[in-house]
Write a protein that binds this DNA or RNA. Sequence first.
DNA 1: CAGGCGTGGTT
DNA 2: TAACCAAGCCT
Length: 362
Amino acid sequence: MPDVPAFAPSVLADLTGRLLAWYAREGRDLPWRVKGGARPDPYRVWLSEVMLQQTTVATVGPYYAAFLARWPTVGALAGASLDDVLTAWAGLGYYARARNLHACARAVVEHHQGRFPDTEAALHTLPGVGAYTAAAIAAIAFGRRAVVVDGNVERVMARLFALGDPLPGARKALKARADSLTPEAAQAGDYAQAVMDLGATLCTPRNPACGLCPWRDACQGRRLGLAESLPAKAPRPEKPTRRGIAFWAERADGAVLLRRRPERGLLGGMMEIPSTPWREEPWTLAEALADAPLSAEWKPVPGRVRHTFTHFHLELDVVAARVGLNAHARGVWVAPDDLGHHALPTAMTRIVHLALTRKERG
DNA sequence: CAGGCGTGGTT
DNA sequence: TAACCAAGCCT
């Protein structure tokens, strides 16, 4: 890395030591961590790291426990169907992670004798394992010296060294700073988790608790009074609103119609309530009927489903119809009590909730 | 490289 | 309440 450290090597080593001491005292006791310096199961580290991508510890907790109970080993997970994995992942979001998780488990079994490779470079070749996750697994599970850089690390480095260049351009410089603080292999895993804990609990995006920070005396961002404003980020573009009409088809025996979405793209591989395409221009019912999964007397359901995805807001109106037992449509008919056994993302469970609630009130 | 890709908690 | 944000990856 081109940047010359602004801190002397002895200062950097002292900072690393202070952080490790802080971590030994204050580090969180999380389900995927092991105590006493033992090496954790690479499968558990990988599973937790993939779930934690852009997702909070609190949200991950129950999903991690459920996955580990149902699939205790990478071999067990590789033996599962993709649909079972997607169903277990439903509600966690970023469903490409679940597809890659499944593909990665199978790759480990088929190409690595059922054991995760133990180098950063080899890990990086696995589906869904990018630069961050490969470094994290190498350091935490295999005791390798790897420079682990996630959003927490970027924020902490930007503040500690008062680097004002905005993301994402500043990534390279931030990684160089992280490298300068990363200790030898034996402690790299603890160090990585320590910086991330620091970022998650003290050096938070807003209202950082600088007074409690083990690096408070050295932090240039704090000294200059701009810690909270770092790292600089480009403003996000406004989210458009897209609209659609969903078709709640209910058979005489109570079963409702679901269908599977395309394997790639938004909610790829997940189940859905059939609907029109989602577009900014509002739909009329007459116009929407061309997209209905079957011909019926569709009646508006009072209320509206709102949901926000990463890059757009969604507003769905719902229409419902009763159809005969012999009704034919592309998809699967599912009893309401069994909806929980299908891979329904949150946007879809909101449609289910609206339709069933209006039906009860009736 | 920029943009697609979920969701729930916090402010 | 609307906006912001989280232990990123892929194309």
